[in-house]
Design a protein around this nucleic acid. Sequence first.
DNA 1: AATATTAAGTGTAAAAAACACACTTCTAAA
DNA 2: TTTAGAAGTGTGTTTTTTACACTTAATATT
Lengths: 230, 230
Amino acid sequence: MMLHYYEKEDQVLLAVDCIIFGFDGKKLKLLLVKRNFEPEKDKWSLIGGFLKKNENLDEAAARVLKALTGLKEVYLEQLHTYSNVNRDSGQRTVSVAYYALIDIASHQFEGILLDTAKWFDVKLIPDLIFDHNQMVDGAIRRLRRRAQTKPIGFELLPNKFTMKQLQLLYESILDKKLDKRNFTNKINTLDVLEKLNEKDMTESKKGSFLFKFDQIKYSNKVKEGFSFKI
Amino acid sequence: MMLHYYEKEDQVLLAVDCIIFGFDGKKLKLLLVKRNFEPEKDKWSLIGGFLKKNENLDEAAARVLKALTGLKEVYLEQLHTYSNVNRDSGQRTVSVAYYALIDIASHQFEGILLDTAKWFDVKLIPDLIFDHNQMVDGAIRRLRRRAQTKPIGFELLPNKFTMKQLQLLYESILDKKLDKRNFTNKINTLDVLEKLNEKDMTESKKGSFLFKFDQIKYSNKVKEGFSFKI
DNA sequence: AATATTAAGTGTAAAAAACACACTTCTAAA
DNA sequence: TTTAGAAGTGTGTTTTTTACACTTAATATT
């Protein structure tokens, strides 16, 4: 039996909640579920779950995400821990928020509970339970900052993408129009994409070239002091 | 009596640990304490404590900081939550790290336990208990980023300071030499300091003018879209 | 009273980065 | 063969960043 060195203190329930961002090729979206238990049954909510004794928070977040969407190997980053005493009307719960980035187009959702889940435009988020709107706001701000200094945007795109899609993605994240020529020039200057001999023909007669993010090239450049900046 | 909706879930001990930064006019320092209980008794450690039922994490961090240093109204910011299953060799504990910024010179430490506490140069941090070195590394990186986009550096300085002190502070935080003229020009361009009709005579015969951070001017500029950038 | 000492204070030119801006090219469909 | 529509591309201007060294002010020394 384990010794308890610390005097008995109050224990708390520790939850994880996931802000799941997706990009459908046009707009940045957020996956929300209709909560099917009390309290706050039938209100929209982030997906969440509780930390178990044998896992850390990163693992708990990945487990919760997989359980509810079927997705694994998804980009997940811890955001902030929310702890107001009455934040959960059920009982004292502290929640660690994570945000996830997934590419909507290339994932088939196994949709275990996708009857109760829905993608919302990030600019049209409904009222959520507890402090979940605050978590979403924090996640959007974090994503905005992070996407400008780390190549995490590619997590939201298919493996192969056009320059137009990449620009639309950044426009969605930063919530502002970007100039096509300046954007292309900047991306080309970064020199971390591989241009494929392959075109996407769905959007124009001419077709537009597809690109891939070159993770190896990026890592090597980082080792030599390069820093990604959009 | 409160209903327990989630009662089958595991509970955990939730700790806060504080990374306390100070600036002595020359170098950036960190306050560490020698731990006086098991496990890991007599090793250097961050100060910490446990979350209580009637407070949130920000309050817990402030309480812990005040209990151990006597300081209140200190800049505190949540950093990250650490949760590896065996991070604490005593029992399963999840810890939320906070970092604090204090001005060493102008605070008289009541020093309740300052016999067991010591300021360390941030570049010479000893081996700490558990994952505290990881927390410190995270805090330094966060401070470095934050100090470039928010005027939090002033939290580490006395109310009145010279341009030289401000420059030395940024050099410590960013861990690189800055050019005096470029630095002065940049700070003047930001236009958020008030230049006092008062000099610090301790460092030179000529004396150097003292400045104050003008919080009101800064807030007004932020409202008009200004963003602080060093 | 003159001189020496020491940090404080100050400006400009060059390079790099950010920005504004519009026409040509390619291909499929008509 | 013509048309239609998105893809693709370059330059000049402005702003920001960087590199760089002498003068000034006040005290201390002679």
